[in-house]
Protein backbone atom coordinates (compact mmCIF):
# COMPACT_ATOMS: atom_id res chain seq x y z
CA UNK A 1 0.00 0.00 0.00
CA UNK A 2 1.35 3.42 -0.90
CA UNK A 3 1.61 5.85 1.98
CA UNK A 4 -1.28 8.22 2.47
CA UNK A 5 -2.48 10.73 4.96
CA UNK A 6 -5.77 10.19 6.65
CA UNK A 7 -8.33 12.81 7.53
CA UNK A 8 -11.75 12.53 9.02
CA UNK A 9 -14.22 14.78 7.20
CA UNK A 10 -15.80 17.47 9.33
CA UNK A 11 -18.66 18.10 6.94
CA UNK A 12 -19.66 17.29 3.42
CA UNK A 13 -18.59 20.67 2.16
CA UNK A 14 -15.24 20.44 3.93
CA UNK A 15 -14.64 16.95 2.51
CA UNK A 16 -15.46 18.14 -1.00
CA UNK A 17 -13.19 21.18 -0.64
CA UNK A 18 -10.26 19.09 0.61
CA UNK A 19 -10.53 16.41 -2.06
CA UNK A 20 -11.26 18.86 -4.87
CA UNK A 21 -8.06 20.78 -4.36
CA UNK A 22 -5.82 17.71 -4.19
CA UNK A 23 -5.84 15.66 -7.39
CA UNK A 24 -4.42 12.66 -5.46
CA UNK A 25 -7.04 12.72 -2.72
CA UNK A 26 -9.93 10.28 -2.50
CA UNK A 27 -12.97 9.65 -0.36
CA UNK A 28 -13.33 6.54 1.73
CA UNK A 29 -16.49 5.33 3.44
CA UNK A 30 -17.24 1.61 3.83
CA UNK A 31 -13.80 0.75 2.53
CA UNK A 32 -14.76 -2.62 1.07
CA UNK A 33 -13.71 -1.66 -2.43
CA UNK A 34 -11.28 1.16 -1.63
CA UNK A 35 -9.11 -0.79 0.85
CA UNK A 36 -8.96 -3.77 -1.51
CA UNK A 37 -7.67 -1.52 -4.29
CA UNK A 38 -5.24 0.25 -1.95
CA UNK A 39 -3.78 -3.12 -1.05
CA UNK A 40 -3.54 -4.08 -4.71
CA UNK A 41 -1.71 -0.82 -5.41
CA UNK A 42 -4.33 0.02 -8.04
CA UNK A 43 -5.35 3.09 -6.08
CA UNK A 44 -2.50 5.21 -4.78
CA UNK A 45 -4.06 8.30 -3.19
CA UNK A 46 -1.87 10.56 -1.08
CA UNK A 47 -4.81 11.61 1.08
CA UNK A 48 -7.87 9.68 2.19
CA UNK A 49 -10.80 11.69 3.42
CA UNK A 50 -13.03 9.57 5.59
CA UNK A 51 -16.67 10.47 4.98
CA UNK A 52 -18.09 7.52 6.92
CA UNK A 53 -18.88 9.71 9.89
CA UNK A 54 -20.91 12.26 7.93
CA UNK A 55 -24.61 12.30 8.80
CA UNK A 56 -25.70 10.74 5.51
CA UNK A 57 -27.00 7.43 6.81
CA UNK A 58 -30.75 8.05 7.01
CA UNK A 59 -33.24 6.26 4.81
CA UNK A 60 -36.47 8.21 4.54
CA UNK A 61 -39.68 8.33 2.57
CA UNK A 62 -39.31 11.08 0.01
CA UNK A 63 -41.69 12.42 -2.64
CA UNK A 64 -43.58 9.14 -2.80
CA UNK A 65 -40.32 7.27 -3.16
CA UNK A 66 -37.41 6.59 -0.87
CA UNK A 67 -34.30 8.66 -0.25
CA UNK A 68 -31.33 6.51 0.74
CA UNK A 69 -28.50 8.34 2.49
CA UNK A 70 -25.12 7.77 0.89
CA UNK A 71 -23.72 6.21 4.05
CA UNK A 72 -26.59 3.80 4.68
CA UNK A 73 -25.11 0.33 4.55
CA UNK A 74 -26.14 -2.21 1.96
CA UNK A 75 -27.71 -4.24 4.77
CA UNK A 76 -29.74 -1.31 6.08
CA UNK A 77 -31.09 -0.52 2.63
CA UNK A 78 -31.78 -4.13 1.72
CA UNK A 79 -33.97 -4.68 4.75
CA UNK A 80 -35.62 -1.25 4.79
CA UNK A 81 -39.30 -2.21 4.71
CA UNK A 82 -40.39 0.23 2.01
CA UNK A 83 -37.52 -0.84 -0.23
CA UNK A 84 -38.04 -4.55 0.27
CA UNK A 85 -41.78 -4.19 -0.36
CA UNK A 86 -41.89 -1.61 -3.17
CA UNK A 87 -38.52 -1.98 -4.84
CA UNK A 88 -37.73 -5.67 -4.39
CA UNK A 89 -35.22 -5.54 -7.25
CA UNK A 90 -33.03 -3.33 -5.05
CA UNK A 91 -33.16 -5.66 -2.07
CA UNK A 92 -32.67 -8.69 -4.30
CA UNK A 93 -29.64 -7.16 -5.98
CA UNK A 94 -28.14 -6.17 -2.65
CA UNK A 95 -28.79 -9.46 -0.91
CA UNK A 96 -27.55 -11.53 -3.84
CA UNK A 97 -24.31 -9.57 -3.77
CA UNK A 98 -21.15 -10.04 -1.73
CA UNK A 99 -21.53 -11.44 1.79
CA UNK A 100 -23.24 -10.44 5.00
CA UNK A 101 -20.03 -8.93 6.36
CA UNK A 102 -19.41 -6.86 3.25
CA UNK A 103 -23.02 -5.69 3.09
CA UNK A 104 -22.73 -4.59 6.72
CA UNK A 105 -19.78 -2.39 5.77
CA UNK A 106 -20.41 -1.27 2.20
CA UNK A 107 -22.32 1.96 1.72
CA UNK A 108 -25.03 2.67 -0.79
CA UNK A 109 -22.96 5.37 -2.47
CA UNK A 110 -19.84 3.24 -2.50
CA UNK A 111 -21.43 0.14 -3.98
CA UNK A 112 -22.19 1.61 -7.44
CA UNK A 113 -18.70 3.14 -7.46
CA UNK A 114 -16.88 -0.17 -7.09
CA UNK A 115 -14.53 -0.84 -9.93
CA UNK A 116 -14.33 -3.53 -12.54
CA UNK A 117 -13.41 -7.15 -11.82
CA UNK A 118 -11.39 -7.35 -15.02
CA UNK A 119 -8.35 -9.32 -13.81
CA UNK A 120 -5.97 -7.18 -15.81
CA UNK A 121 -7.13 -4.04 -14.00
CA UNK A 122 -5.81 -5.53 -10.76
CA UNK A 123 -2.50 -6.80 -12.09
CA UNK A 124 0.00 -3.96 -12.06
CA UNK A 125 2.29 -5.93 -14.35
CA UNK A 126 -0.26 -5.98 -17.17
CA UNK A 127 -1.35 -3.13 -19.38
CA UNK A 128 -4.72 -1.62 -18.56
CA UNK A 129 -6.06 1.66 -19.86
CA UNK A 130 -8.50 1.90 -16.99
CA UNK A 131 -5.74 1.70 -14.40
CA UNK A 132 -2.93 3.35 -16.37
CA UNK A 133 -4.30 5.42 -19.25
CA UNK A 134 -2.44 4.78 -22.46
CA UNK A 135 -0.90 1.48 -21.38
CA UNK A 136 -3.19 -0.65 -23.54
CA UNK A 137 -5.85 -3.29 -22.92
CA UNK A 138 -4.64 -6.77 -22.01
CA UNK A 139 -8.14 -8.19 -21.96
CA UNK A 140 -8.52 -7.76 -25.72
CA UNK A 141 -6.77 -10.83 -27.02
CA UNK A 142 -6.33 -12.12 -23.47
CA UNK A 143 -8.62 -14.00 -21.13
CA UNK A 144 -11.92 -12.19 -21.50
CA UNK A 145 -14.40 -14.55 -19.89
CA UNK A 146 -16.10 -11.88 -17.77
CA UNK A 147 -15.98 -9.05 -20.27
CA UNK A 148 -18.39 -6.85 -22.16
CA UNK A 149 -20.81 -7.61 -24.98
CA UNK A 150 -22.02 -4.05 -25.40
CA UNK A 151 -20.55 -0.58 -25.59
CA UNK A 152 -16.93 -1.66 -25.36
CA UNK A 153 -14.16 0.21 -27.11
CA UNK A 154 -10.74 -0.55 -28.50
CA UNK A 155 -9.39 0.84 -25.24
CA UNK A 156 -11.43 -1.19 -22.78
CA UNK A 157 -13.79 -4.18 -22.65
CA UNK A 158 -14.34 -4.22 -18.91
CA UNK A 159 -17.72 -4.71 -17.25
CA UNK A 160 -19.18 -3.02 -14.22
CA UNK A 161 -19.53 -5.42 -11.29
CA UNK A 162 -22.20 -3.88 -9.07
CA UNK A 163 -25.50 -5.74 -8.77
CA UNK A 164 -27.13 -2.78 -7.07
CA UNK A 165 -26.30 -0.47 -9.96
CA UNK A 166 -28.24 -2.71 -12.35
CA UNK A 167 -31.37 -2.49 -10.23
CA UNK A 168 -30.99 1.27 -9.71
CA UNK A 169 -30.62 1.77 -13.43
CA UNK A 170 -33.79 -0.14 -14.23
CA UNK A 171 -35.66 1.90 -11.61
CA UNK A 172 -34.31 5.21 -12.95
CA UNK A 173 -32.98 6.13 -9.54
CA UNK A 174 -31.50 9.59 -9.06
CA UNK A 175 -28.15 10.35 -7.56
CA UNK A 176 -27.80 13.52 -5.47
CA UNK A 177 -24.33 14.93 -5.25
CA UNK A 178 -22.46 17.84 -3.85
CA UNK A 179 -19.26 18.89 -5.53
CA UNK A 180 -16.83 21.69 -6.08
CA UNK A 181 -19.38 23.29 -8.43
CA UNK A 182 -22.35 22.86 -6.13
CA UNK A 183 -25.09 20.26 -5.88
CA UNK A 184 -26.72 18.38 -8.72
CA UNK A 185 -28.97 15.46 -9.54
CA UNK A 186 -27.81 12.73 -11.92
CA UNK A 187 -30.18 10.19 -13.44
CA UNK A 188 -28.75 6.84 -12.48
CA UNK A 189 -28.49 5.51 -16.04
CA UNK A 190 -26.29 8.52 -16.75
CA UNK A 191 -24.00 8.03 -13.74
CA UNK A 192 -21.72 5.45 -15.37
CA UNK A 193 -19.94 6.04 -18.65
CA UNK A 194 -18.98 3.90 -21.56
CA UNK A 195 -15.22 3.44 -21.87
CA UNK A 196 -14.57 5.18 -25.18
CA UNK A 197 -11.03 6.48 -25.19
CA UNK A 198 -11.09 7.37 -21.48
CA UNK A 199 -11.88 4.14 -19.65
CA UNK A 200 -10.13 5.36 -16.51
CA UNK A 201 -13.28 7.42 -15.88
CA UNK A 202 -15.99 5.06 -14.63
CA UNK A 203 -18.61 7.72 -13.96
CA UNK A 204 -19.52 11.28 -14.78
CA UNK A 205 -18.67 12.39 -11.22
CA UNK A 206 -16.05 15.12 -11.05
CA UNK A 207 -13.03 14.78 -8.86
CA UNK A 208 -14.20 15.79 -5.40
CA UNK A 209 -17.89 15.28 -6.13
CA UNK A 210 -19.56 13.41 -3.30
CA UNK A 211 -22.76 11.40 -3.52
CA UNK A 212 -25.10 12.44 -0.72
CA UNK A 213 -28.10 10.25 -1.45
CA UNK A 214 -29.67 7.88 -3.91
CA UNK A 215 -33.34 8.53 -4.50
CA UNK A 216 -35.79 5.90 -5.63
CA UNK A 217 -38.59 7.69 -7.42
CA UNK A 218 -42.21 6.79 -6.79
CA UNK A 219 -42.99 3.53 -8.56
CA UNK A 220 -46.17 1.51 -8.57
CA UNK A 221 -45.05 -1.42 -10.65
CA UNK A 222 -43.16 -4.65 -10.04
CA UNK A 223 -39.44 -5.02 -10.08
CA UNK A 224 -37.15 -8.00 -9.94
CA UNK A 225 -33.47 -8.91 -10.20
CA UNK A 226 -31.90 -12.14 -11.43
CA UNK A 227 -28.26 -13.14 -11.29
CA UNK A 228 -26.18 -16.05 -12.60
CA UNK A 229 -22.88 -16.89 -10.98
CA UNK A 230 -20.37 -19.72 -11.03
CA UNK A 231 -20.60 -20.18 -7.28
CA UNK A 232 -24.03 -20.38 -5.63
CA UNK A 233 -23.29 -17.41 -3.41
CA UNK A 234 -20.56 -14.86 -2.74
CA UNK A 235 -19.63 -14.43 -6.38
CA UNK A 236 -19.89 -11.71 -8.97
CA UNK A 237 -22.50 -12.05 -11.67
CA UNK A 238 -21.58 -13.64 -14.97
CA UNK A 239 -24.76 -12.01 -16.19
CA UNK A 240 -27.69 -10.40 -14.47
CA UNK A 241 -30.75 -8.36 -15.23
CA UNK A 242 -33.17 -6.08 -13.48
CA UNK A 243 -36.68 -5.56 -14.73
CA UNK A 244 -39.19 -2.91 -13.73
CA UNK A 245 -42.68 -3.37 -15.14
CA UNK A 246 -45.60 -1.00 -14.89
CA UNK A 247 -48.86 -2.53 -15.97
CA UNK A 248 -51.97 -1.04 -17.41
CA UNK A 249 -54.56 -3.67 -16.75
CA UNK A 250 -53.38 -6.81 -18.51
CA UNK A 251 -50.95 -4.90 -20.69
CA UNK A 252 -47.47 -3.68 -20.10
CA UNK A 253 -47.56 0.08 -19.83
CA UNK A 254 -43.84 0.53 -19.50
CA UNK A 255 -40.95 -1.85 -19.14
CA UNK A 256 -37.45 -0.93 -18.09
CA UNK A 257 -34.66 -3.43 -18.37
CA UNK A 258 -31.07 -3.15 -17.25
CA UNK A 259 -28.53 -5.87 -17.99
CA UNK A 260 -25.58 -6.52 -15.71
CA UNK A 261 -22.22 -8.11 -16.42
CA UNK A 262 -22.37 -7.23 -20.10
CA UNK A 263 -21.08 -3.67 -20.34
CA UNK A 264 -19.01 -0.94 -18.76
CA UNK A 265 -22.21 0.23 -17.11
CA UNK A 266 -25.63 -1.24 -16.37
CA UNK A 267 -26.88 -1.72 -19.92
CA UNK A 268 -30.37 -0.45 -20.56
CA UNK A 269 -31.96 -2.73 -23.15
CA UNK A 270 -33.92 0.01 -24.85
CA UNK A 271 -34.90 -2.01 -27.95
CA UNK A 272 -36.48 -4.60 -25.69
CA UNK A 273 -38.17 -1.94 -23.58
CA UNK A 274 -39.70 -0.44 -26.70
CA UNK A 275 -40.87 -3.81 -27.94
CA UNK A 276 -42.69 -4.57 -24.70
CA UNK A 277 -44.53 -1.30 -24.24
CA UNK A 278 -48.28 -1.67 -24.74
CA UNK A 279 -48.12 -5.43 -25.22
CA UNK A 280 -49.84 -8.31 -23.50
CA UNK A 281 -47.21 -10.31 -21.59
CA UNK A 282 -46.52 -13.73 -23.12
CA UNK A 283 -43.50 -15.97 -23.18
CA UNK A 284 -43.23 -15.48 -26.91
CA UNK A 285 -43.18 -11.72 -26.52
CA UNK A 286 -40.52 -11.98 -23.88
CA UNK A 287 -38.39 -14.14 -26.11
CA UNK A 288 -38.65 -11.57 -28.82
CA UNK A 289 -37.71 -8.86 -26.35
CA UNK A 290 -34.70 -10.89 -25.19
CA UNK A 291 -33.61 -11.46 -28.77
CA UNK A 292 -33.89 -7.72 -29.40
CA UNK A 293 -31.95 -6.95 -26.23
CA UNK A 294 -28.98 -9.01 -27.38
CA UNK A 295 -29.22 -8.40 -31.12
CA UNK A 296 -26.29 -6.01 -31.05
CA UNK A 297 -24.09 -8.03 -28.71
CA UNK A 298 -20.48 -8.19 -29.81
CA UNK A 299 -18.79 -11.15 -28.16
CA UNK A 300 -15.06 -11.50 -27.58
CA UNK A 301 -13.13 -14.76 -27.64
CA UNK A 302 -14.29 -16.12 -24.26
CA UNK A 303 -17.59 -14.45 -23.43
CA UNK A 304 -20.03 -15.51 -26.14
CA UNK A 305 -21.77 -17.74 -23.60
CA UNK A 306 -23.23 -14.58 -22.10
CA UNK A 307 -25.51 -14.14 -25.10
CA UNK A 308 -27.70 -17.23 -24.59
CA UNK A 309 -27.30 -16.88 -20.84
CA UNK A 310 -28.39 -13.25 -20.88
CA UNK A 311 -31.30 -13.91 -23.23
CA UNK A 312 -32.59 -16.80 -21.15
CA UNK A 313 -32.15 -14.79 -18.00
CA UNK A 314 -34.12 -11.88 -19.37
CA UNK A 315 -36.96 -14.12 -20.51
CA UNK A 316 -37.14 -15.63 -17.06
CA UNK A 317 -36.97 -12.27 -15.33
CA UNK A 318 -39.83 -11.00 -17.45
CA UNK A 319 -41.88 -14.15 -16.83
CA UNK A 320 -41.33 -13.90 -13.10
CA UNK A 321 -41.88 -10.15 -12.86
CA UNK A 322 -45.08 -10.31 -14.88
CA UNK A 323 -46.35 -13.19 -12.78
CA UNK A 324 -46.44 -15.71 -15.64
CA UNK A 325 -43.99 -17.80 -13.61
CA UNK A 326 -43.53 -17.87 -9.85
CA UNK A 327 -40.47 -16.31 -8.27
CA UNK A 328 -37.85 -18.79 -7.14
CA UNK A 329 -37.95 -17.36 -3.62
CA UNK A 330 -39.63 -14.61 -1.62
CA UNK A 331 -39.56 -11.23 -3.34
CA UNK A 332 -36.89 -8.92 -2.00
CA UNK A 333 -34.53 -11.72 -0.92
CA UNK A 334 -31.41 -13.36 -2.33
CA UNK A 335 -33.46 -16.47 -3.03
CA UNK A 336 -35.62 -14.69 -5.57
CA UNK A 337 -32.52 -13.43 -7.36
CA UNK A 338 -30.24 -16.47 -7.31
CA UNK A 339 -30.63 -18.45 -10.50
CA UNK A 340 -30.08 -22.14 -9.81
CA UNK A 341 -30.63 -21.59 -6.10
CA UNK A 342 -28.55 -23.07 -3.34
CA UNK A 343 -27.24 -26.60 -3.20
CA UNK A 344 -29.11 -29.15 -1.15
CA UNK A 345 -32.50 -30.76 -1.19
CA UNK A 346 -34.37 -28.13 0.75
CA UNK A 347 -36.57 -25.85 -1.29
CA UNK A 348 -35.96 -22.13 -1.00
CA UNK A 349 -37.95 -20.45 1.79
CA UNK A 350 -41.34 -18.93 1.09
Amino acid sequence: MHPFQYQRAESGDQAVAVVAKNPDAAFIAGGTSQVDLLKEGVHQPSLLVDVAGLPLRQITDFEGGVRIGANATNTEAAYYPAIQARYPAVSEALLAGASVQIRNMATMAGNPLQRTRCPYFRDLDQPCNKRTPGSGCAAIGGYNHVHALFGASAACVATHPSDLAVALSALDARVQTTGPRGSRTIAFPDLHRLPGTTPHLDTVLEHGELITSIDLPAFAGRSHYLKVRERASYAYALASCAVALEMDGAKIKRARIALGGVAHKPWRATPAEALLAGQQPTEKLFQAAAAAAFADAKPLEHNAYKIPMGRNLLVRALLETSGLQPLQGPAGTAFAASVGGMAGQVATPN
Binding site: S99, V100, I102
Partner: peptide, 19 residues
Protein backbone atom coordinates in the same frame (compact mmCIF):
# COMPACT_ATOMS: atom_id res chain seq x y z
CA UNK B 1 -33.41 -10.25 13.75
CA UNK B 2 -33.28 -10.80 9.98
CA UNK B 3 -31.37 -14.04 10.15
CA UNK B 4 -31.84 -15.39 13.69
CA UNK B 5 -34.48 -17.98 12.82
CA UNK B 6 -33.21 -18.89 9.37
CA UNK B 7 -33.78 -22.29 7.83
CA UNK B 8 -30.89 -24.46 6.66
CA UNK B 9 -31.01 -22.88 3.22
CA UNK B 10 -31.02 -19.39 4.71
CA UNK B 11 -28.05 -20.32 6.88
CA UNK B 12 -26.30 -21.54 3.73
CA UNK B 13 -26.80 -18.18 2.08
CA UNK B 14 -26.01 -16.07 5.14
CA UNK B 15 -22.82 -17.99 5.94
CA UNK B 16 -21.47 -18.07 2.40
CA UNK B 17 -19.11 -15.20 3.12
CA UNK B 18 -17.01 -17.54 5.23
CA UNK B 19 -15.10 -20.02 3.13
Amino acid sequence: QHTRHGSAVEIREAMSGNL
